[in-house]
Design a protein around this nucleic acid. Sequence first.
DNA 1: GGTGAAAGCACCGAGTT
DNA 2: AACTCGGTGCTTTCACC
Lengths: 159, 159
Amino acid sequence: MAKFKLDEIDHQILDMLIDNTRVPFTDIAKKLVISAGTVHVRVKKMEEAGIIKGSSLTLDYKKLGYSFIAYVGVFLKNTSQTKFVLERINEIPFVTVAHITTGKFNVFCKIRARNTEHAKDVIFMLDDIEGVYRTETMISMEESINDKKRLMHSIFNEM
Amino acid sequence: MAKFKLDEIDHQILDMLIDNTRVPFTDIAKKLVISAGTVHVRVKKMEEAGIIKGSSLTLDYKKLGYSFIAYVGVFLKNTSQTKFVLERINEIPFVTVAHITTGKFNVFCKIRARNTEHAKDVIFMLDDIEGVYRTETMISMEESINDKKRLMHSIFNEM
DNA sequence: GGTGAAAGCACCGAGTT
DNA sequence: AACTCGGTGCTTTCACC
């Protein structure tokens, strides 16, 4: 939970790797005018410190036939059931993220589906969970940003 | 936009790479009992087809001191201003995702911040955008799932 | 904490079946 | 379409600074 101290070189290494994990360390080394060994050691340290949790592929879900995104707010009959309901939600495929929230909804989740029909099936599964009072769906018509690099820069700018 | 045909071997290759992009192709080859060259050719094809859009590092934002997540629903004075407002939102740091939505809100976004105070600054910036009528914030108290691998398996199971 | 070189591998293309 | 194989180049370690 504690803050970890990263210097300018770490920032730049992350900057080059954040949206392309396969950039050779030798390229990074050249650009930063340090040795490839140093890049290696620093990346390893950030991994050990847990700053770098891992790496992942970015797939094009639209091309796979899954272009539907919606957010679903869930109202519970009783907040004491939150944990139970969350566990049931976690079992539903195509629910990609779930949060316990304050504010309007008790639980809030994101789903990705093939189309409206398919999303309906997923939402019905949410509605059918014992303890769920009702749900409210917001369909995404256009996703406009989703940029890790930008967030990272915002963070580094504040350091 | 069109569906792209992936076979069982492609599924397994993606399965191994999706949450660790640095798994050596030789390891994948061993596990699937094919040659490393084949793995290479298949990955390249998926990249060329755009199924694999890229790769990214997963950072631990909590460890960087940014543990606050909230969703903010935005109501507009007039929906004709949607495009303009979205552009302004895209300029605000710490807004990580924004969607145009149907349903309760006109625009819906996710923010990541240091703490409540910091989030307040971000939300004020949203409120201050010309054309924004008001906003509604849902604070995430606990994020429960966020798993690409699970989504991918859900998709493959349906194919 | 950084370097530079050397050893060990992985990547990736060419040629073959 | 997949395999083998070889050249090229990346990663990773280590002795030294």
